[in-house]
Each structure stands twice: as structure tokens, then as C-alpha cells.
Design a binder for these strands. Sequence first.
DNA 1: CGGGTAATTGACTCTCTTCAATATGCGTGG
DNA 2: CCACGCATATTGAAGAGAGTCAATTACCCG
Lengths: 231, 231
Amino acid sequence: MYRSNEALSPAALIAPPLAGALAAAAIPAPVRSDPFAATTAPRPIRARDTIHRSGDPACGAFVVRRGAVMLVGTLPDGRRQIYDILGPGDVFGLSDRPVHGHDAVALTDCVTEPFGSAQTQAADVVAAALATIARQHRHAMLLGRLTALERVAAGVLRLSEVLSADGVGFDCPLSRQDLADWLGLVIETVSRNLTALQRRGLIGVARFTRFEIRDRAGLDRLLEPGGAAHA
Amino acid sequence: MYRSNEALSPAALIAPPLAGALAAAAIPAPVRSDPFAATTAPRPIRARDTIHRSGDPACGAFVVRRGAVMLVGTLPDGRRQIYDILGPGDVFGLSDRPVHGHDAVALTDCVTEPFGSAQTQAADVVAAALATIARQHRHAMLLGRLTALERVAAGVLRLSEVLSADGVGFDCPLSRQDLADWLGLVIETVSRNLTALQRRGLIGVARFTRFEIRDRAGLDRLLEPGGAAHA
DNA sequence: CGGGTAATTGACTCTCTTCAATATGCGTGG
DNA sequence: CCACGCATATTGAAGAGAGTCAATTACCCG
């Protein structure tokens, strides 16, 4: 979204309000009142369900057992950024503040399980957090320094890891708008570059949502100059 | 850096090796190999010194006591992204893998101290990691969804938090190139937008490095539509 | 087989980048 | 103390990648 330098203005990505006070105000998160939350029982969630919303009180971490989840931040003016796509083994729900700063939405039917409770080692929580940070760093590189074609290629590869059983084909549960909000592009640019990747024979897309990796080596090569990352 | 869709190619920001075994690598190890790590002794570092490089074995977390540190990722083709700017209280040095995936460079003379050792609570490590994740989320929003002017404004405000004693003026230890690599822009765009902010009377810049917040409310307003973040 | 939503494609625009001069600051030495 | 020279920053002009606007097409579903 291009916006005039004159017009506008969005605001507080700077300092974390760090509100010590967890207002009681927030809408009770779905999970809040959920009996599952306090137990170690896996919790089934349906595709597109919102697991928690920005502003909901944070109430513990969850690990994705099956399916996929996305974390979505939204600015007051509607600009959206998908911060992360989580698959089996990935953890979410932790916050440095009493309330969540983003939405968590199930991308597919999925199963989550409380994480970080009694029997879980603190080291596991740290490990999960570190994996998250590493993903965020890679995504920052993508957002700040990759071209649109590279972003889309990297996005497809990442999705194949999270969503594909065989590492080749998968049903993409993200709309083109979601992909755009994840990759820092607009919907049309995502579409054009998906088409470009298809024309090159690198991927296949059928019925909008059915993705297939056709030439992984080619995709890797496309991302090579940026490379495995790091000097 | 614009690159032709044809020419192409950077690569592996996709999947985190996700070494299921964060075995010896990550958490516990840190404090082990480094002589300093085993102690609680603060360690003085000079401005521009590289604290660790990508590829170096990760050897424990450190907390910044005084000064500032930046974390820098570099792609094989030279594209750079500054992942984070750390100030007093912020923690770095943790990795989900046995080796670091980015450089850590002192922005100013600074003092760091081992973090996460015996007497430190695991909860402290988790808290530090969560604060980092929250910063990364905000930065992802900046990189993916803010305009150049907004990014520069947000960057200046963030720097004032980290570097300024009075919250108003500070000497910016980042070159224009550093700022560009942090905000996902090119050097000229940073320069132009700093000039734009000056013309609006929002900030002052003297001798290239001396920054001053002239109208914080104005800067906040500039960032308002994006706002305090989140719906 | 229509009707509605989502995706694709085309034409054009614009922000940001690129390329190319200046200009400013700072260190050095005459 | 000032002239020179280098490194970094600023500014201008032009280009390009990605965005915007607007149809058109593809898919889903009743």
C-alpha cells in the first residue's frame, strides 16, 4: 500500500507500552474459559478459528501438534502483517506482556497442546523461543532485502515445509491476501509472481490453492545469491 | 536494492534446520566455553568491535549493561539486514543452533555481562527472549507495511530510547548505510527522509550524527494511522 | 447453469531505487 | 591555522519494481 509522505501516519511500533497493568477489560480469550487450557489435554481447533485475539490476556504457551497456525498483527488503519506461520512442533501464545499483541488464527484444522506447564522443562520453552527468534530474523531479511519474486519463492518453500507431508505438494490455506500480508507485498504482486514461478516450471498451482514444488533445485538457485544467509 | 525478476537469486531463509536436538548447543552450553561466561564479570567492549560473527560457536547469552549492540545478518551476495538494535537490559547471544547466524557488533563502547548462568532464573531468560520476539514482530510490521518516512521516524524514536539519556538528543552510532540496512531502505532514501523530518521540524540533525527529537508528538502523530499497533 | 467471491491480468502510476554530482566533516600536513 | 584529500552524506534527475485501479477470468456452490 503506497501512501503519500504528506498525508498520513501510523504510529506505535516503537516502544512496547510495557503496560504492567493487565486490564481486566480484554475480551475473554476463547482459550481463557476453556477447560482445556488448564490441562495437558490436546485441544482440537477448526480451520480459520481465531485462537486468540490481540488484547486478549495471555494465558500460557501452546505447541502445535497437528495443522498450522498464523500470527497476525494489524495496525489501527488496517494494515496487516502476518508475523509467523507455525507448524507441528512450533510454539505460540507466549507474550512479554499480560495481553497478546497479535491474533493467532488456525490455518487448518489443528491440534494444540498446552506447553510450558509443569512437566515441561524451562529449557524447552527457551528452545522454542529461540527457534522463533531465528525464524523472525530470516523473515526480517526477507521483508527488508528480498525482491518480490524471491519472497514468493521463499514463501512457497516455507509453506511446503509446514504444510506438506511429502515436501512436494500442499493445499495452501492462506488466501492471496494472506500471502501478501505475510510477504510484505500486495495481492496482485503475489499473484503475478506465482504465475512467473509457474511459467519457469518451478512450481505448479491448480485451483488456486493446490501448490506443488516442481523444481526445488531451481527454487533454491533462485534464492541462492541471497543464499543460505549470512556472510 | 531492486533486482530483476529475471536475473535472480538469493536463497535459504526458508527452513530453520530446526535441529530437533538443541542438545548441547543452545541453552545450557552458553555459559560453558567462554571464560567470561563462567563468571559474572562485566566485559567492556569498544565501539565498532565485533562481539561475535556469524558462524562462531554460540557460547551463552549476554545482557547489555551499558551502551548498544546491533545484530547484523548478511546474505552471500552482500545484502545486509540489521535484525535488532539492543540497549541496556536487552539480551543477545542465544541461538537455537550451535553457531550464530548473524554478527553482533558494538555500536558504542559498552559493557556486557553473562546472562542466564547459574543464579539467573530460567524465567529471566524466557522473559528476555519474549521481549526480543515482541521487538521482532514490531520490526516485521515496519519492514513489511510502513512507508519510508514512517520507517525513518520509527527508527529515530527507537534509537532515542536506546541511546538517549534524556530521551531527546543522542549521537547516532549508525551510519546512513546501517540505518538503511536496518529499515529496509537504501542510504539515499534514509537521507532524504531524515531531511524531510527536519523540514517538518520534527527532528534536528547536526554534523551527520547528532540527532535530536524536536517534536515527539508530531512524530507520534506521523506514526498514528499505523498506530499503537494492532486492531 | 447462474451468482458471488477470489484470483489473475492489463494498463498506468508512484514510491523508492539507481546513477551521478556536489557538499559536508574531519584528519593531516605544510 | 588553513589547504588538501578522503570518506560519508546530501541532493538531483531518471529509471524501475512494485503498487493502484480496473476489468476479466476461474472456481465454488446452491
